[in-house]
């Protein structure tokens, strides 16, 4: 039995815009163990991003409780919240969110600069190593605008990894990428998951969701399905197939 990492109880989030209340999440409960690979799916506006932001400690829930690594996050101060984002969470965004005019290496080093407990002694080596893990060893001195979308997203993944977080969160990480590049990025995720990293990501595409091990479906802010994938796909193999197709077309 694997160690439990995420435990949420009756999590709710209400956005207030003037008089109007938007119930983005209604009483969501979920438990995720170490080593899992969860894909969150659902229609647009179903609350996927809202849930991810709460899991990533970027936002606070209106109701309910969130235990991360056994710590009740609702009791934490603003600074402790920031420290949790730094130490325990790696977040990958749809829009990459790299600092412009800053090299890949410096972008990846960034979380280590805010590492207050000095968990990592050799930031430079760690950053290089993280870039190596996502297959960008030869691009470390490139600026974001000198990289393709897929490469930028891999830099963002390296940045999320560099602090050895407990979980890797990704909100539509391939939303801005074409399908081949998306599969490449998923193969990175699969590789990292095999190395033991817990991953939760949001995707719209059923095909991509099948790269995960478990699917959680949301509708109107509630979990409507939560099941293990029976026929799991391997991104590496899919990539080979795609390459062959291209060759055959030619």
């Amino acid at each position: 039995m694997n160690k439990n990492i995420i435990n949420i109880f009756n999590l709710g989030k209400v956005y207030k815009i003037g008089e109007v209340e938007v119930h983005a999440l209604r009483s969501v409960s979920l438990s995720i163990d170490e080593g899992e690979f969860v894909a969150i799916m659902g229609a647009s506006g179903s609350g996927k991003s809202t849930l991810m932001n709460l899991l990533g400690c970027l936002d606070k829930p209106t109701t309910g409780e969130y235990y991360l690594d056994g710590v009740n996050t609702s009791k934490l101060t603003k600074n402790q919240y920031a420290d949790i984002r730094n130490q325990k969470i790696g977040f990958v965004f749809q829009g990459f969110n790299l600092l412009p005019r800053t090299t890949a290496l410096e972008n990846v080093e960034l979380p280590l600069m805010y590492d207050r407990i000095n968990k990592i002694k050799n930031p430079l080596e760690r950053a290089v190593e993280a870039l190596e893990r996502v297959g960008l060893k030869d691009r470390i001195h490139h600026m974001p605008n000198q990289l393709s979308g897929g490469q930028q997203q891999r830099v963002a993944i390296a940045r999320a990894l560099v602090n050895s977080p407990s979980i890797l969160l990704a909100d539509e990480p391939t939303g801005n990428l074409d399908s081949k590049t998306s599969v490449e990025v998923f193969s990175v995720f699969q590789k990292l998951n095999e190395e033991g990293i817990t991953i939760i990501l949001v995707t719209h595409e059923r095909d991509f969701a099948n790269f995960a091990k478990r699917i959680v479906e949301l509708r109107d802010g509630k979990i409507v399905r939560d099941y293990m994938i029976s026929k799991r796909l391997n991104a590496e193999e899919e990539l080979e197939k795609l390459k062959k197709e291209i060759v055959e077309e030619v």
């Binding site: 920031a82 420290d83 984002r85 805010y114």
Partner: peptide, 16 residues
């Protein structure tokens, strides 16, 4: 603002 958001999201404190 976006840069600030990025820094906050990877664990910068308000004081940073």
């Amino acid at each position: 603002t976006r840069e600030i958001g990025i820094r906050l999201s990877i664990g910068a404190r308000a004081s940073d």
